[in-house]
């Protein structure tokens, strides 16, 4: 049996909102040691989502037997919207489940809402992702990255990211004209989440689909900062850290034809 109780429903609500536009169906893997993990790939096979919610993400967590819960994320999102962000949220499943029980509790108002979501058999490829060497790692405020990704998408369907030891430059080249935004590395000791940190082994110049970057920044409400790891001619990794876990996106780059 699986029983995972979150202190607030907000984490799960934000996680599902962050991934449901990229992947429609996914398997939730549940185990006593790892908590809940997800690996899902979008239909175009360009964007991979990796979620990890350690048992420490939960107020209470037990999973007697490893379980795979196949979910339609649009349906899960409909149910998660029924609860308030500050409600307790508990996920419950039997050992051979055909449904997932989702319970919201508002202890102050003595309100309990229960929903049952039908599970599905989902056949999906699982990819092996080795810990990659990277040419540079950038940590910046998640909101600043989201603004650049959203703004630049209006100019072009591609966004070029150029990193040197003291700045990150985003460049868009579209039919109406061109644009660039430069963010300089800075350390803000009073408010470290406002810092822009660049750890550079080698300068990087990569191009990504603006559509996918806009899917990634849907995770912005989950964390103050995002860490981006870039390597020449390999997928980039975008990480939003959670309390006791992470939501990562791996995005395949675009290349000159």
């Amino acid at each position: 049996m699986l029983e995972g109780k979150f202190e607030t429903a907000s984490t799960m609500k934000k996680v599902i909102e962050a991934i449901k536009d990229s992947v429609k169906l996914c398997n939730l893997n549940c185990s006593q040691n790892d908590g809940i993990t997800v690996q899902a790939i979008d239909d175009s096979r360009v964007l991979l989502i990796a979620l990890k919610l350690d048992p420490s993400c939960f107020q209470e967590f037990r999973c007697d037997k490893d379980l795979v819960l196949g979910l339609d994320l649009e349906s899960l999102s409909k149910i998660l919207r029924q609860g308030n962000p500050e409600d307790y949220l508990t996920l419950i499943a039997e050992d051979s489940p055909d449904s997932l029980l989702i319970v919201f509790e508002d202890s102050k108002k003595d309100r309990i809402s229960e929903f049952s979501l039908k599970l599905m058999d989902i056949d999906s490829d699982v990819l092996t992702i080795d810990e990659m060497e990277h040419d540079c790692a950038i940590t910046l405020p998640a909101a600043a990255f989201a603004k650049v990704a959203r703004d630049m998408k209006t100019l072009s369907e591609s966004l070029q990211i150029l990193v040197t030891k003291d700045s990150v430059k985003f460049k868009a080249d579209g039919s109406i004209g061109t644009g660039s935004v430069i963010l300089r590395a800075r350390t803000n000791l009073d408010d470290t989440k406002e810092s822009i940190l660049i750890d550079l082994n080698k300068p990087v110049n990569l191009t990504f689909g603006a559509k996918y970057l806009n899917d990634i920044v849907k995770a912005t409400p989950l964390a103050d900062t995002v860490t981006i790891k870039l390597t020449d001619k390999a997928p980039a990794m975008f990480e939003y850290k959670l309390q006791g876990g992470f939501l990562r996106y791996y995005l395949a780059p675009k290349f000159e034809d």
Binding site: I41, S44, L48, V126, L127, T128, G209, Y250, K254, F255
Partner: peptide
């Protein structure tokens, strides 16, 4: 004129 690459050319299926 840039071409989108696929994750499958970088990561192996498990």
């Amino acid at each position: 004129p840039s071409k989108q690459s696929s994750l499958m050319s970088f990561f192996g299926k498990r």
